[in-house]
Design a protein around this nucleic acid. Sequence first.
DNA 1: CGTTCCTTGTGAAAACGTTCACCTGCGGCT
DNA 2: AGCCGCAGGTGAACGTTTTCACAAGGAACG
Lengths: 213, 213
Amino acid sequence: MKRFSESTVRRLSHYYRVLEEVHAEGQRMISSHLLAEREDITSAQVRKDLSYFGSFGRRGLGYNVEHLRTEIRAILGLDRRWRVALVGAGHIGAALLAYRGFRDQGFDVVAVFDSSAERVGKTLDELVVQDISKLPECGDIEMGVIATPVRAAQEVADMLVAAGVRGILNFAPRKLRVPEGVAVRTVDMTMEFESLSFALSQTRGKSRRRAGE
Amino acid sequence: MKRFSESTVRRLSHYYRVLEEVHAEGQRMISSHLLAEREDITSAQVRKDLSYFGSFGRRGLGYNVEHLRTEIRAILGLDRRWRVALVGAGHIGAALLAYRGFRDQGFDVVAVFDSSAERVGKTLDELVVQDISKLPECGDIEMGVIATPVRAAQEVADMLVAAGVRGILNFAPRKLRVPEGVAVRTVDMTMEFESLSFALSQTRGKSRRRAGE
DNA sequence: CGTTCCTTGTGAAAACGTTCACCTGCGGCT
DNA sequence: AGCCGCAGGTGAACGTTTTCACAAGGAACG
């Protein structure tokens, strides 16, 4: 099976979002140039990305917004619903549950787990927080979200994999070991801060320093 | 000024984290191979990354943990403290404030803003939530975190830039327009979900499908 | 002191991703 | 109908990032 680059997939998400906007504005067609303009991407990149998956445009006209939107939905697997389990009912977990956007995109959080006796039994966004030990029994789950402290992350990942999960969104700042066939995406805010810190250290004084060097 | 790739900087963060662990374990020296092992990176990559910034190792011995740790701290700009303003006191904002890890790394959230009358005036993690209109007066801030609804994101970004911020961590799923010299890192959870969704759609049946294609 | 076993640092090569340039197809206009 | 201008698709060129492979430095040991 052909592999696509992570960057291409991320850009598809961008295109999809732009298409949603443009669709809402009632536009029928859109050119690769316009599609690119809203992000900082070149039109050639847009055409190349899309061409990996098919020929969706028409020469001289551009892309049909409605059609391309449907195609990208299908490519990204957004033309179905995904059953998601959330592990960790702390602040991050609660933030995720509160954000309706995921549900709108087809991601249904159907179970919430935590290990703290304080939180188990409480209701969070219409879901009763269950003890983590119940995870193996929770049935048909396709994705898991790890929003636990870092020390629990690997253990939770193992449990999720054992429960049949094939995709994990990990908020713990640690690389998870998972068997082949399980996809992991890690969101590491500390790393983002550090990346900013690096960038600011590098450019320090760019606007202040006038002469020399 | 030489530019370094984003991937290199991210890996530096990884190395730093590994070094913290190894340091805590009391190890004195570490080889590029061992440094690589904990992530899925090759040892050559580790050496190449580090060589961009200097020669920190000793042939035959590896890297001195304490020394390399100090060097990377300096490279990433973690040998100082950063003053951070948080805009948006909703779930994500609260989650960030609650996480002590940032403070430990040198990132001090010194002010919290929100536009909702409900939240302004409340105390969140020892900080009083101020009205967003007070942002311009908040003084020497180096970084901003945008944890607002997407519709407010660009406006808040403009305000932060006007207030002198040179680094923005953005949780809103939108590309921000900022002047040159301002660094932006966007954490887009919807995109991560979509990336997982794509990955799962691609490999569907990898373990189920036996023969053919 | 020489040999052996490690491990770094780094040019060179390979792989990968992005941009360029051009051909082709399509609608509109005369 | 024929011409013109626009815009997608795509091979080739280009640039960047990763991997390879090896020379050189260093410790240990007989």
